[in-house]
């Protein structure tokens, strides 16, 4: 294996792999190449240093955060809040569905009842709107007492 390949593999490897162990091919190369072995050690040290990096928070952070906190903590758990919102959505959907299908049902019921009556023997079918209105107008005129 070339040094360049080994270094790239080491640099891009997982932090665990870097500290726990490398592949047999890389290990073989590290055993023979002092420069790459040194590179490996340095990367391990950088990795460990990053893992333990701690910076002390500035003292002004405490009053800043405490001032920003709301008066009361959130009581509802996320699951409860989700459950409640799902319940509200389901309820809304039910109401909408009820009104929508109820309206359709009423309309259908009207059509069915009209067609049923019209299909009965001896029943005169409903005239078309124009004729019907003329008829109704005539009837009204006839019904109006003449002076």
């Amino acid at each position: 294996m070339k040094c360049e390949t080994v270094r790239q593999l080491l640099a891009e490897s997982d932090a665990n792999a870097l500290s726990a162990g490398v592949s047999p091919e890389v290990a073989q190369h590290l055993g023979t190449c002092e420069s790459c072995a040194e590179y490996h050690k340095e990367l391990q040290t950088v990795s460990a240093g990053l893992g333990g990096l701690t910076i002390v928070a500035p003292s002004e952070l405490y009053p800043q955060v405490m001032q920003a906190l709301p008066a009361k903590p959130g009581v509802l758990s996320r699951k409860m809040a989700l459950l409640l919102s799902m319940l509200v959505v389901a309820l809304c959907a039910l109401i909408i569905e009820y009104y929508y299908f109820y309206g359709q049902y009423r309309q259908q019921e009207h059509v069915i009842s009209t067609s049923c009556v019209e299909s009965m023997p001896g029943v005169i079918p409903t005239p078309n709107t124009e004729e019907y209105s003329q008829t109704s107008q005539l009837t009204l005129e006839q019904l109006t007492p003449s002076q």
Binding site: I55, P58, E60, Q64, V65, A68, P70, P73, L76, R78
Partner: peptide, 28 residues
């Protein structure tokens, strides 16, 4: 926060936002 945002002012704001969120979601 500091390691990601790169400056102390933003890092303090990130910490503030983090703890405020945690307080608001204490239930969970």
């Amino acid at each position: 926060a500091l390691a990601i945002v790169g400056n102390a002012t933003d890092a303090k704001d990130v910490v503030q936002e983090t703890f405020v969120r945690a307080y608001k979601r204490l239930g969970s």
